[in-house]
Design a protein around this nucleic acid. Structure first.
Lengths: 154, 154
DNA sequence: TTCTTTTCAGATATATATATCGCCATTGTG
DNA sequence: CACAATGGCGATATATATATCTGAAAAGAA
């Protein structure tokens, strides 16, 4: 569904939203959201380009949410690292096959629904606990990342 | 959204549905749906394992739709080659984080919606033209419109 | 200025998905 | 039976996504 990278971007963004407007270093973020530091750095750089987070170099630098969490949608975050866009026409590439055939229309609709859903969901909403009282990223234990298992597509 | 492989599987399955109950060789299918023959063969083998298509070895062998197109869902096809399943709990893997946090709950819902949508769509529906009269896989092929019947590519 | 902290950028390594190849098994036909 | 057509299957090659490394640039503090 979403790429691993998009999942990382969301976890980092939600965390920064949860502590906004604090500035956190890449290492500090990594400790909480359990993403390899070097890769997280890349993801954060992409988020900075997309104006989701603001970066600050040098001593006491780090990353902070660039805008209020109520004004950043989940889709905004995903679009920084993944291309969730819909194909304009049938990917078969046949010249006189301009529109979408039923097969691709259906897939296009599904992507459209997902985009709308994610576009309407703000980071702020992600911070509010669900019916089980569960909020993202909470857990004190250190986890061991298994390398052999398949990545989880979310 | 869907992997390239899933896209291939769908194109092949829709094509076989459009000519059912005819048997077609991998090469013949490749000519129509524009998928590299060696890779298409792998995809078809997966579809055979999933009982979507029936394979027949030997002279005059090939692949044919295993069941009526009305009884095969798009999800059935995708599941043969892609794992579209939803994670049971938050993929962070933190032991005391059993349920789904709002972030993952939302993504889980989106996958659920997609599954339901694809699960309710049959290959038969994919063969019926949309409002533009467009049916899958049809390029320059001539369309023969029979009275009181759906268009068929020849 | 000089030192330390920290992001930034590009190069590199690894894992996974995608694609190809070669040989064997099966089947219809002469 | 012998032969040709065809899928099955394992091994291999290539492309892309994911992850890591290294050094430079920036910024605050002594």
């Amino acid at each position: 569904m979403l790429s691993q990278t998009a999942e990382y971007a969301l976890r980092a963004a939600v965390y920064l939203a949860s502590v906004a407007p604090e500035v956190k270093t890449a290492v500090a973020i990594s400790d909480v959201v359990k993403i390899p530091v070097p890769y997280l750095s890349k993801v954060l750089q992409n988020l900075a380009k997309g104006r989701i987070v603001a970066s600050q170099r040098g001593l006491h630098g780090g990353f902070a949410l660039a805008r209020p969490a109520t004004e950043i949608s989940v889709l905004d975050v995903v679009n920084c690292v993944d291309n969730l866009s819909r194909p304009a026409h049938c990917p078969l590439g046949i010249p006189d096959h301009i529109g979408l055939c039923p097969l691709h229309r259906r897939l296009d609709d599904a992507i459209s629904d997902l985009q709308r859903s994610l576009g309407q969901t703000t980071l702020q909403e992600m911070l509010e606990p669900n019916s089980d009282g569960i909020v993202p990223l909470i857990g004190k234990q250190k986890i061991v990342r298994k390398r052999s298992s398949r990545p989880i597509a979310v």
